[in-house]
Amino acid sequence: MRPRLFDPVPASEITPESVYLQRRRLMQGLVAGTATTLLGCDSQAEDAAAPAMPAAIGGLKTWPDSSKETLTSYRDVTGYNNFYEFGTGKGDPAARSGRFQPKPWTLEVSGEAEVTGRFDLDDLLKGITLEERIYRLRCVEAWSMVVPWNGFPLATLLRRFKPTSKAKYVRFETIQRPSEMPGQRSAILDWPYQEGLRMDEAMHPLTLLAVGVYGRWLPNQNGAPLRLVVPWKYGFKSIKSIVRIRFTETQPRTSWSDMAPDEYGFYANVNPAVDHPRWSQASERRIAEGVSVFKARIATQPFNGYAEQVASMYSGLDPRTLY
């Protein structure tokens, strides 16, 4: 039995699956998964689907600026992941995260803020309206997806902690639990995984804390129960399974730039003009239904297509330093 973030809700409160499935976007994704199930290629797909979110939690209002591009299927969004805590293979997170327990979950908040301490995630989520936001996700490895996240702006949560004027950055940390995260038993990265944002980036309305995807609670492999989504930055900035948030005065260290500072920077804004030292960032392979193997590659957009919303935050900085 897959662990649930919340207790099962009465059947009457759950949006009937048939009603939900009428939504065209969901059809795109789930039908693709079901089709392969029928072909017998992935008998796990049905069992593996995470529990649907109760509509009572927020109503999942659709965000007006959502991407209109073809969605990546539920199967691929939840089956092709970089989450080294569960292994370095793209299928490892889905295959090896079954033991992970995302409930109960405590978030520890510290640093330059008036309200700090340990908070139960269920309590923090009370009164928060969840939205559906369809964002492009661009991996630093030059592939991309289009994902319907369910979450809320990070700013909504951060404001509750009343950061002080000294808070210039926010540092995030992933849980360290080697008994449930087999990847953490080898020193591939310096665990626990850590990431950071400048305060204005953290408070930006595009920056999302996700608790679900495709109208279902986040599966373990996608960073249950709480993950960051920063759509204009390379995917590794969108830290998963967050247990600690710290407001800091100085720029926090981040896992990938600690590991290879010449290859991964703090900002990691998607930038087709600045190549990774070992591969080009000018283009990307789109992972989505119906993409022909002959036309998988598309041009990468500055700030992953969100330049209009975010470029002004970096106007004083040399874009070449923002990789």
Partner: peptide
């Protein structure tokens, strides 16, 4: 080309 190409067939 005929069966299940997986998420990133080109890769």
């Amino acid at each position: 080309f005929l069966g299940d190409p997986g998420p990133d067939p080109v890769a």
